[in-house]
């Protein structure tokens, strides 16, 4: 199994604070990996470095797509990283709240379907053809996510759980091969979390994804993650299978404090 993502020596300093220091990660194609750690451990910073929100202070990020070969994505602009095939969701939901559910997905999906500006102004045939395809494909994606009945509602009017689903749908619409989920189950009740757990597993198979997820809900992480990285104070303190990580004394210390 080849690596889809190889992160080496990733470091990010904010002033004198090393939010992330010397982190190494490897994700095999098709893996479902968890990134956990106490609050403030630097998990979201790692995501922001992987997706280009900030440039790394040091270290390399290599992303490989089987059809395109390895590319270095460290420090590139977020839209370029997205187009390379890395999709993400946000911890605090960042939908286009005043647009419809459908338009949220359409804007992501249209990035792969270009037509010239002139045909936009004059509504030429390439416009009509591409628009029909974009909308049909977006509706199909909403159907898979169970949101098709709400396509014309404004995103802000969706219930919380649906908003989380829409964020995933929007990320999927960019046709990623690697999907980064930042606390997808945050704010969900146990029932919704269980449903989401099944959905994530299903999406990985249906869309042939590799998934890296940040999560606080251990029931989700332990259930579906094949491997887990544990981050504390910006450093990877443990990694391995869920069982290994759970038994690791360093992890227990980071979460519960030192034994007296």
């Amino acid at each position: 199994m080849s690596d889809i993502l190889a992160v080496e020596g990733l470091t990010r300093n904010f002033g004198g604070l090393a939010a992330v220091s010397n982190v190494n990660l490897r994700l095999g194609t098709g893996e479902l990996v968890g990134l956990i750690g106490p609050n403030g451990a630097g998990k979201t910073t790692v995501f922001n470095l992987l997706t280009g929100v900030y440039p790394p202070s040091a270290g390399t990020i290599t992303f490989t797509r089987q059809d395109r070969g390895p590319v270095s994505i460290g420090g590139r602009r977020p839209y370029a990283i997205c187009r390379a095939g890395v999709g993400r969701t946000f911890q605090n939901i960042r939908l286009f709240k005043d647009l419809t559910v459908l338009d949220n997905v359409v804007i992501a999906l249209q990035q792969n379907r270009r037509y010239p500006l002139l045909s936009s102004f004059l509504r030429l045939p390439p416009f009509a053809k591409a628009e029909a395809e974009i909308h049909a494909e977006s509706l199909e994606l909403l159907r898979i996510m169970g949101l098709d009945a709400k396509a014309e509602e404004l995103a802000r009017n969706l219930p919380y759980g649906d908003q989380r689903h829409l964020e995933i749908a929007r990320a999927l619409a960019t046709k990623p091969t690697l999907l980064l989920l930042d606390e997808p189950a945050a704010g969900m009740n146990p029932n919704e979390t269980a449903q989401l757990t099944r959905l994530i597993a299903r999406l990985r198979d249906e869309f042939a994804l590799t998934i890296l997820l940040i999560e606080h809900d251990m029931s989700l992480v332990m259930k579906i993650c094949e491997r887990i990285y544990v981050l504390d104070h910006g450093v990877v303190i443990a990694s391995g299978t869920p069982a290994e990580v759970r038994a690791n004394p360093k992890v227990i210390e980071a979460y519960l404090g030192e034994e007296a």
């Binding site: 997706t51 977020p78 839209y79 792969n112 416009f127």
Partner: peptide, 28 residues
């Protein structure tokens, strides 16, 4: 017509949330 096209929707996405727009591949 511009606003109801691919290019116009990209612009509206920038207004709505620039960070989210970039994260889904919009060259803001």
């Amino acid at each position: 017509n511009y606003l109801r096209s691919r290019q116009g929707r990209d612009a509206i996405a920038v207004r709505e949330d620039e960070i989210a727009a970039e994260s889904i591949g919009v060259d803001t």
